[in-house]
Design a protein around this nucleic acid. Structure first.
Lengths: 211, 211
DNA sequence: GATAAATAAATGAACGTTCATTCATATTCA
DNA sequence: TGAATATGAATGAACGTTCATTTATTTATC
């Protein structure tokens, strides 16, 4: 009898995915340098040597995680931007997207900006390029808004860095079940950002719309 | 003839200071976990064993650096606040102080917030307490401003974290000799912060005062 | 002020452990 | 049968730390 279509084993990727998941969790919790391949293997439920059937080196796991994160972040934004009605304020859309994404993928985000220094030069370049690609999204929004007179931004690049730093700091203190839920955080930060770029009317609207 | 006052050897602290300086530089550049005691010793110009005459463990060096940084940061603020005329806007004073200090002591700052995870629990507690003490300074400024109606801040604690994250991100992209000098950065960020808390009039004044 | 005793700091080799990675062999699966 | 994957032991290097010993410096004594 033909095998009962047991889900057709999606590729040899099954164990590699477990390795990624275990490494991500451990790197996020203890830092890349402090995590041993033995620990990763134990979390996967396998002997250390088996890891090398899926990744050539420990560094390759880190590179894989970081590049995958950047690709996912950028494509998630592209979906978000495509689905938004053209009437929505793009800065508001971006801020809320960034916060939501960063609170959903805490480990990926944390590893991706804490472990930059542990990337070998070549991998560092690659990740840095993706990072700049993402930041350019916000810079373009701010530049367009400044040109149209909607925002008062003297230097769109500086404002980009300021806003991204502000938003990216959120996961470092956010606790699920804490005093603020993600939507409240979105509202507070959206108001702060709108005002910071001189869009006061918008800030009030947005700041209140949840009350 | 009496020895020519050869500077009276200021204490046994001389080498310990060199250890601190070397460890700070190396931890900032490569990360605590990636730096070996042998590297530190080599940078001091001494054999590895000699380090243990000054610090009991590698962890003790990190703890020492981080606590010293927090103490220095807080006492620098206290001097700053004491010397300011009472007419100055306290938020503006704080923002400019924070930026200036963080650009001057880049290594200390970088180590102090990147290596938190490498502190053993007891040391982590101590450093965390100092950190909260510093953040409270800004929270108090914002709360007072909100009460007086000068600022529109819905949640002073959230605004504190947002502003500090925004400012603390500066050293990660600032380059001495780059397009912006520290004073220009101060001005741009002071404007962003003032506006973010709804103090628009102030933002304009400050944003322009350098042009 | 010289000399001896006491203290502090540095040496250089070694300790036991852990690290990332390799590899011959076995197992699993298509 | 052949290819992919896992095992488990081994490799050599690097790690933080220790320690008996030597070298410098400070303190006490005359």
């Amino acid at each position: 009898m033909s095998a009962p279509a047991r889900q057709s084993t999606p590729k040899g990727t099954q164990t590699a995915a477990k390795v990624r998941a275990a490494a991500l969790k451990l790197f996020a919790r203890n830092g890349y340098a402090a995590v041993s391949m033995r620990e990763v293997a134990q979390n996967v439920g396998v002997q250390p040597g088996a890891l090398y059937n899926h990744f050539a080196t420990k560094q390759d796991i880190l590179k894989d995680l970081m590049l995958a994160h950047m690709a996912d972040l950028i494509s998630a934004w592209e979906r978000e931007a495509a689905n938004k009605s053209s009437g929505a304020d793009p800065l508001d859309t971006f801020v809320r997207f960034h916060i939501r994404y960063h609170l959903e993928k805490r480990d990926e985000v944390f590893v991706s900006y804490m472990e930059l220094r542990n990337l070998e030069p070549d991998n560092y370049q690659q990740v840095g390029a993706e990072r700049r690609r993402y930041e350019t999204i916000l810079t373009d929004i701010l530049s367009a808004g400044a040109k149209s007179g909607r925002y008062q931004v003297k230097d769109a690049k500086v404002a980009t860095r300021a806003i991204i730093a502000m938003l990216t700091g959120i996961p470092s203190w956010y606790q699920p079940g804490g005093a603020l839920d993600p939507t409240e955080i979105e509202n507070l930060y959206a108001a702060l950002v709108q005002r910071s770029v001189g869009s006061a009317a918008n800030a009030n609207t947005i700041g209140e719309r949840v009350s």
